[in-house]
């Protein structure tokens, strides 16, 4: 349980460890992109953690990084092909960032720091915790950016519901800058500061 929760808060990959930032900022213009990206990362993270944990006794130490990279790249290719086949719209709006999951430091970091030293069960729990922590971080950023920058919240369309929630007031006059690149960096900076504040408040309570 501890392994699972640490990824959400104390070792949140985005706000505390500052890992995997490139995709985070680039795809966070719409909530639906954040969900898609988060799901992709969780899948790759679980897959690679399982494989690395299973193969940890067979991979020679000298070549362990290239071996991990090949494992990760295979799972990324699976995600990429599945997304192109079943969710073409999402795949085209994420663009090269699906393939760039392969250089996402979180995944190699977890393979190296956790899965290569622990058993399969713990590795899956660790991957889930980190993956969900990443997705939650991504969701927070994209929610702030989309609500302020476009005045909408875009989700998956279901039945009569078009998938887009319009926020009165903001929809007619959004602060467009938040959807553009400078907004991403600004939102990220202030959210990180907010997270620092929360963590330090938490620490004071524990003492």
């Amino acid at each position: 349980m501890f392994n699972f929760l640490k990824g959400l808060f104390k070792e949140n990959p985005i706000f505390v460890l500052a890992l995997g930032l490139c995709p985070t900022l680039a795809v966070s213009t719409q909530v639906v992109n954040a969900i898609g990206m988060g799901a992709g990362v969780i899948f790759v993270l679980i897959g690679s953690n399982i494989m690395v944990s299973l193969l940890k006794n067979f991979i020679p130490d000298e070549v362990h990084i290239p071996a991990y990279i090949v494992i990760i790249a295979s799972f990324v290719t699976i995600v990429d092909l599945l997304m192109q086949a079943f969710l073409p719209a999402l795949s085209s709006s994420l663009g090269v960032f699906v393939k760039l999951i392969v250089v996402n430091c979180i995944i190699l970091g977890r393979a190296e720091a956790f899965a290569s030293k622990n058993n399969v069960k713990d590795s899956i729990v660790d991957a889930l915790g980190m993956g969900i922590g990443f997705t939650v971080g991504l969701l927070i950023i994209s929610l702030v950016r989309e609500v302020l920058g476009a005045g909408t919240i875009t989700l998956f369309p279901m039945g009569d519901f078009s998938g887009v929630i319009k926020i009165p007031g903001l929809y007619d006059a959004p602060a467009r800058i938040f959807s553009l690149s400078p907004g991403a960096l600004l939102v990220m900076g202030f959210l990180m500061a907010g997270f620092n504040w929360l963590l330090s408040k938490n620490k004071n309570k524990e003492n």
Binding site: P182, G183, L186, M188, G189
Partner: peptide, 21 residues
């Protein structure tokens, strides 16, 4: 205090990106 380090770097980066627009 809470903006020290990475957060203020992001904010400065954001302002720089604004200029690059």
């Amino acid at each position: 205090r809470y903006l020290k380090g990475a957060p203020i770097a992001f904010v400065s980066g954001g302002l720089m990106a604004l200029a690059f627009m």
